[in-house]
Amino acid sequence: MTVPPVSTEHLARARLLAAPGLAAPVVRSLERIAGRPVEPEDTVQGGPYVYVGAALPEALRGDGLLWFHSVNAGTDAVLDAGPWPSGALLTRTVGRMGERIAQYVLAWVLADCQSVPEFAAQHERAEWRRIPSELASGQTALIHGTGRIGSAVAGLLRACGIRTVGVARTPRAIPPPGFDATAGPDEPVAARWVIAALPLTGATTGYFGADRFAAMGGASFINVGRGATVDLEALEAALHAGTVGRAVLDVLADEPAAPGDRCWRLPRTVVTSHSAGITADDDIVTDFTACLRALMAGRVPALAVNPARGY
């Protein structure tokens, strides 16, 4: 299955639907951009229709669906909810998420270099002790995922003098934007930081397991992709063994994490509650507009998702 084409004729007469939870300013902007009112989803009788929201209601997973624009960057939950309607287009919202996530990663990289966690712990103990810092420049970051998010992270780290190596299924002679080089998934690369920016697919579920953690050589691990790409038991064992120096987890397989969840007890780990790249209302409007303009021009939007691949 590939990304399906969308008829401009059908698009021109499609009804516009939006999830009830969308902010009023977003709804007004969608109406202005599409040139038609947003209608309640429970009034739909047949198609074609366009739906904007975080999840696609089961009642709308029919032949009438022309296009679903997700307000999230990840679409795995939408695709896992049931068979994707044949011929329907799926697009996603990225907006400035890459920039936000890149700054999040850089913040933790610099905190690592400046021993921020150690100084915070000393402060709690009212202890005065110098801890040597290290320079980020000249060190290596290995980034699993070379798409929009991974490239944004690589570009910002590279601007700080960090060598960036992207992990791709097929390494390229010319690296993607932001990367100094690429490597295969199991190719050994000595890195100070290993950053996960992978989508969740059948191929990436449990991707970071015992073998990959054992090969990290004490690197810090930062996950800004999807929680289910990580085997949490394997990460815990690697943290205890020292093959992973520390971990920063913005995403978990099961969210939100309950107070008794094992993630809170992992050594040298910080969990940040899926906050690295929160979608802003402007992101939704900007990306919906870009997708609509591409479709009206007869092009496949850059933010289109291939349902067979999951990204």
Score class of each variant (00 low, 15 high):
154 A>I: 06
99 E>Y: 10
168 A>E: 11
7 S>K: 04
165 V>Q: 03
126 A>I: 08
294 A>E: 12
243 T>R: 00
80 D>H: 00
304 A>V: 13
310 G>A: 02
62 G>V: 07
299 R>N: 10
165 V>N: 03
77 A>F: 01
261 D>S: 14
74 G>C: 07
111 A>S: 14
191 A>L: 08
72 N>Q: 12
139 Q>V: 06
92 R>L: 07
186 D>F: 07
301 P>G: 09
39 E>S: 14
220 S>E: 13
254 D>T: 14
5 P>V: 05
311 Y>A: 00
3 V>L: 01
23 A>Y: 05
85 P>L: 06
111 A>K: 11
269 T>C: 15
151 S>I: 07
272 T>N: 08
29 S>H: 10
255 E>Y: 05
179 F>N: 05
141 A>C: 09
122 Q>K: 03
123 H>I: 03
69 H>P: 01
96 R>L: 13
283 D>V: 07
11 L>Q: 03
286 T>M: 09
65 L>Y: 00
254 D>F: 03
3 V>C: 01
253 A>M: 09
13 R>S: 14
150 G>W: 06
106 L>W: 00
299 R>H: 15
178 G>S: 12
273 S>I: 05
208 F>S: 13
264 W>P: 09
146 T>Q: 04
132 P>S: 13
263 C>H: 13
89 L>M: 01
15 R>T: 15
278 I>Q: 14
253 A>W: 05
147 G>H: 07
26 V>L: 11
62 G>W: 04
157 L>Y: 02
98 G>T: 13
95 G>V: 06
203 A>Y: 00
276 A>Q: 04
23 A>G: 10
129 R>V: 12
247 A>V: 13
61 R>T: 07
307 P>M: 05
217 G>K: 13
51 Y>V: 05
170 T>I: 10
215 A>C: 11
46 G>Q: 11
131 I>P: 04
54 A>N: 04
161 G>S: 10
21 G>W: 10
153 V>I: 15
6 V>E: 04
142 L>H: 08
230 V>P: 09
247 A>Y: 05
174 I>F: 07
254 D>I: 08
107 A>I: 01
123 H>Y: 02
33 I>M: 03
124 E>A: 15
296 M>F: 03
230 V>A: 12
152 A>P: 05
209 G>K: 12
22 L>K: 13
44 V>K: 02
239 L>V: 02
113 C>F: 11
53 G>N: 05
272 T>Y: 04
277 G>I: 11
55 A>V: 03
266 L>D: 11
16 L>H: 09
309 R>G: 05
87 G>A: 00
58 E>G: 03
172 R>C: 06
110 L>V: 14
233 E>R: 15
124 E>C: 04
268 R>T: 02
256 P>F: 10
90 L>D: 00
242 G>H: 01
71 V>F: 01
133 S>W: 13
188 P>A: 10
235 L>W: 06
287 D>C: 06
174 I>H: 14
126 A>H: 14
7 S>N: 01
12 A>C: 00
30 L>S: 00
269 T>G: 09
250 D>P: 06
251 V>F: 09
285 V>C: 09
216 M>E: 11
139 Q>W: 03
224 V>D: 06
184 G>L: 02
168 A>L: 15
73 A>W: 07
129 R>H: 13
95 G>T: 10
234 A>Q: 13
147 G>D: 06
298 G>I: 08
156 L>V: 15
256 P>N: 12
285 V>T: 13
292 L>Q: 08
207 Y>L: 14
214 A>R: 15
